[in-house]
């Protein structure tokens, strides 16, 4: 059986017919070619597939595409193209906070959400927020640094413009 679903992905209305068994991650990657959402474990343990669902980070591998019908989804491509994470991306780049890049999109989506909720997180709060995001390459310190630096810059920019 297939079902018709309708949702907003990166600001665009999408209508597709899917099998109920298709995960949101597979839907994004295979139907919409949004391959920035990666699959590392398909059981919610690695964080590579994090996307924003209704503005909150969720594992796209643990949500069925049919469950997302009527919802708003934003992926790393959407965040990137609308400029929402330009400073985070710059800080990651500057700090070399990524190597192979496979965990990076999930990290960035999660970092974006974290800074939305906690504008100036402490280092251990950043580590806690990343506790479900696995990175095999970096050792995490550079990622924590990049997020902390983005938070610091945003805070000082806000102060300067206040």
């Amino acid at each position: 059986m297939t079902m018709d679903i309708e949702l907003t992905v990166n600001g665009e209305q999408v209508r597709e017919s899917v099998e109920p068994r298709m995960s949101l991650a597979d839907f994004l990657r295979e139907r919409l070619q949004l391959t920035g959402t990666h699959l590392g474990c398909e059981m919610g343990a690695c964080g590579a597939c994090l996307v924003l669902l209704g503005g909150k980070p969720v594992h796209a591998c643990l949500v069925l595409a049919v469950q997302a019908s009527g919802e708003t989804v934003e992926t790393v491509e959407g965040l990137s193209e609308r400029g929402a994470i330009a400073d985070l991306q710059a800080a990651f780049h500057d700090r070399n906070a990524l190597q192979c890049g496979f965990c990076t999109t999930g990290m960035v989506v999660n970092a974006h959400a974290l800074l939305g909720e906690t504008p100036v997180p402490a280092r251990d709060e950043i580590r806690d927020a990343l506790s479900g995001n696995y990175c095999r390459c970096t050792g995490y310190e550079a990622i924590v640094d990049a997020i902390a630096e983005t938070a610091r810059k945003r805070a000082s920019d806000a102060e300067a413009s206040a």
């Binding site: 919610g44 964080g47 669902l53 980070p57 949500v63 927020a129 479900g132």
Partner: peptide, 9 residues
């Protein structure tokens, strides 16, 4: 309970 993204769902 698990991790932040899990707790969102």
């Amino acid at each position: 309970v698990a991790h932040p993204a899990i707790r969102n769902r």
